[in-house]
Nucleic acid binder design. Structure first.
Lengths: 272, 272
DNA sequence: GCAAAAGTGTTAAGTGTACACCCATGC
DNA sequence: GCATGGGTGTACACTTAACACTTTTGC
């Protein structure tokens, strides 16, 4: 790592790092903002994300996205994966590149910095096992604290991308378990979109896509009629160059796939 | 710029550069592949792009995307702008970030390399003024030569993105002049999409979007009824963080805007 | 029985597509 | 007049959204 004063550094290429916007429906329960967030229904009905408190200037004390530097020999996806694991101890169930930010003004007086930003989704089950370190804390996506650099805008962009993508892809499955009822899947869509959806039309739309299959079993949720349990069909193996969402199989110790191409869909309209 | 052998370099962060996929309908006429491309209608009916011949290993002699290194003090967009101007002497009429490629395998034996890739559109008028240097040559997008690194896949991705985006945004205007007939605009769509469109439905669709306004003048194209001349409305000034397409005003000597937010459109479905 | 949620059916409105048709010009 | 492309009208298929209705459970 080269050192030098600011004027020397301006002659060189800027630092390049990888950051991750990690999104989940809910947050760990061993966390401080519990008292402010109401009951557990309020938790799982909103999007939450972990942030890291900065321990140096600039933006000392503000909150920032988890991230790390670039290294040779590993891919950008693996770098994002590592940044996610080192801060939250969780495995993402979806990971895709968001955008690369490099405007000199974004560092606000610090040294120039290029950030290759990924966004990740983690399932509700993984959140419970999350160990919360001293400088890592979860926040509701709609009640963010003071953020360092341009990270607030980056998070807004990730949320916008999630809202768009949930309408034409199967990423909602990353928030729930392998088996789920249509009501559970619908509540995910409602939490992300921020509005209620017609259960009848949601059913027809999601089943009509052919992505789901009935497992044959039913579960009783409340004091109502039992609901059929569905799962996503396998063989979403149409991965191609036109689907930059990453296959993390090679990056995971257990070798399980966490991301099938989520968007070779013809309805996809390009990132932005 | 640090030097060292390969094993030393593997300890350090990889090199980071900016590359550009430059697309146009047509190519300069002072160019060698003229004899192979047929008449001028064949030229303007297809997408062309300029490539640079590599003069060093790896991939010596193959063709590659124009690009350059990163510098502090300028934005990524400005770096892409500079790479475009230095190779083709042209001003882009549209410029947007495509994707950042960083897989270690993509260098194929060379040193690890991260490429922040942009894609650009240039108008037909600018192409004629293009000076073609010795190592720069234009190729049809559907007849590419041997390409270095993973640049073929990058170009395919850019073309896929263009085909998607032309259906819900106004980027087709970047290929034509400020004033145009609906037939001219339709021929752009047909060239990009690779299929013919119903003139009546195209008219209704494009006029129904409210983006065009009639200039009141007409032109006679062939031996047919005169066609009304349209232009895009001004005040596409809803630029926001959700529209990463770049405003190049600050990067242009004449100060004219070349890109208004081309996609705060609700139909946008995220990049990929 | 009653409440609540699962699941089905129906209908009106909107959208995309194919194609028939008229209009204005050059020849 | 005739051919050509500009421009309008229209019918049909399909999708979307709203909502009434039936079914199956807990209480």
């Amino acid at each position: 790592m080269p050192f030098g004063n600011v004027s020397e550094r301006l002659q060189q290429p800027p630092d390049v790092g990888v950051s991750v916007v990690i999104l989940a429906l809910g947050a760990p329960e061993n966390e401080e903002s519990r008292d402010a967030s109401g009951d557990s229904k309020d938790r799982t009905g909103r999007l939450w994300l972990p942030l890291v408190r900065r321990v140096r200037q600039p933006f000392l004390g503000d909150w920032a996205l988890p991230g790390g530097g670039l290294q040779c020999g590993i891919s950008l996806e693996q770098a994002a994966f590592a940044a996610l694991e080192s801060t939250t101890d969780m495995h993402p169930r979806y990971l895709e590149q968001l955008y690369t930010f490099g405007d000199p003004k974004r560092s606000s007086g610090g040294l120039p910095m290029v950030s290759i930003v990924y966004w990740a989704l983690v399932g509700s089950a993984e959140i419970r096992t999350c160990t919360e370190g001293g400088n890592v804390q979860w926040f509701p996506a709609d009640e963010l604290p003071a953020l360092a650099f341009d990270h607030r805008g980056i998070i807004e962009y990730a949320l916008w991308r999630l809202r768009n993508k949930i309408e034409y892809s199967t990423i909602a499955a990353r928030f729930v378990g392998e088996r789920f009822t249509l009501a559970q899947l619908r509540s995910v869509h409602e939490a992300v979109l921020g509005r209620s959806l017609d259960p009848a039309n949601f059913r027809r739309h999601i089943l009509g896509s052919g992505e789901l299959e009935d497992t044959g079993t039913t579960v009783i949720q409340g004091r109502s009629r039992p609901a059929s349990v569905y799962r996503y069909r396998r063989a979403e193996t149409t991965s191609s160059l036109f689907s930059p969402s990453v296959d993390l199989a090679h990056a995971r110790a257990d070798g399980s796939r966490v991301s099938q191409s989520a968007m070779t869909n013809a309805h996809n309209k390009g990132v932005s």
